[in-house]
Computed example of a mutant assay.
Amino acid sequence: MRLSDFNYNLPPELIAQHPLPNRTASRLLVLENHVTDVVIKDQQFTDLIDLLNPNDLLVFNDTKVIPARLFGKKESGGAVEVFLERITGETTAVAQIRASKSPKPGNKIILGSDEEPFEIEIIGRPDDSDNRFYEIKFSSPCLSLLEKHGQLPLPPYITHEANADDLERYQTVVAKNPGAVAAPTAGLHFDQATLDKIMAKGVNYTTLTLHVGAGTFTPVRTEDLSEHKMHSEWFSIPAETQELIKKTKLAGGKVIAVGTTSLRALESSAAFNIQEGETKLFITPGYEFKVIDQLITNFHLPCSTLLMLVSAFAGVEPIRKAYDHAIQQQYRFFSYGDAMLLTRQ
């Protein structure tokens, strides 16, 4: 398939700029794949409880979004913005750096406040000279510096600066492991009361960790998808989660990924027989899924790797019909938008 097969026209007013007052207030588009046709149902997210069965298993991504944006200046005084892609060690990270001139290895950038300044040093490029990321070293543990001086990063299609509402609502209720620079947005629809109701029905839930990187927003630029260089993300699947998946399959329950990041971690684990590490798995139509039966997800950007992933999962034509329907019915799109429930084709 070609890149142009995954394009669609979205009216800008359907891009959700703010979360709804309540986490569970979103709509839920249910896409059912039958042998002879595709059925699309307009429901509310709270209806999800009725669509789950005892012995089903929800798998959440428990990554926590870090305050990954920092502002400061070069030693020469020029303004600089540092946007972390990922933390690689206690004092090291990979980041994008916006400045009037590209920094060089050994250059230092002064960040923080006038009262509490700190430095980072440019180490170099992680790959080649064309790479847009830099390896950087903090003067002290970076997580504590980010918590004190960093700003929450919002996706590029959200036009306002992060506010107090975003600080709460751009994290899932299961978030506990800091390291992501974008939220696993399907999980944003759940609150603790909903999780309690799900558990009371006999449905289990568990977690894994995949630290979502800024690469999730990187558009595919090659018409031939085989030429796209997929971004890398770190994941870890606990032994308890692996055991629950086995028990669910044996009991005849469905394994339901809450978000494409949970799906990517589980399918990467199955494909490469690892429980922790880096994944560059690029899922496109034709991929044979090994773990996931259903997927809860938001609506994704045109020509994005995530749109290709859901098309591989539910079918290219069913997803096209679902997106056309969602636009006609004025669903809210992207991170703060509405949700879908997809069944594997």
Rank of each mutant, 00 (worst) to 15 (best):
A93W: 00
E119F: 03
I237F: 09
L341V: 00
Q345W: 10
P238N: 06
Q329V: 14
K104C: 09
L266V: 08
N7Y: 14
V258P: 00
Q151A: 13
G89M: 08
T159I: 09
Q151M: 14
S139D: 06
E161K: 13
P153L: 05
D56S: 03
P117N: 08
A95G: 06
N273H: 11
K197N: 07
S4Q: 15
A164N: 15
P238R: 03
K280E: 13
L281I: 02
Q96R: 10
A95S: 10
Q328V: 13
I327T: 03
I49D: 03
L195H: 06
Q242V: 11
I274Q: 03
R320S: 14
Q17A: 10
K74T: 12
T241M: 07
R320D: 11
S76P: 07
P302V: 06
I237G: 12
N61C: 01
I110P: 14
R2P: 04
T36P: 13
K280V: 11
N177V: 04
D114V: 05
K74I: 07
R132C: 10
R132L: 13
D127A: 15
L111E: 04
T241S: 08
A271Q: 08
W234Q: 00
A312P: 06
I120E: 08
V258G: 01
E168Y: 12
V316D: 07
T88G: 05
K246V: 08
A175H: 05
I283G: 00
N55F: 05
V174Q: 12
F118W: 04
L14N: 06
T63W: 04
G215W: 07
L28W: 03
T91R: 09
I292H: 05
A182S: 10
T207I: 10
V39E: 02
D50P: 10
I87S: 08
G78S: 15
K101Y: 07
E317P: 14
V173M: 14
G187K: 00
A239M: 15
D224Y: 10
V80F: 02
H160A: 06
A200V: 08
S129W: 12
K73A: 04
R2D: 14
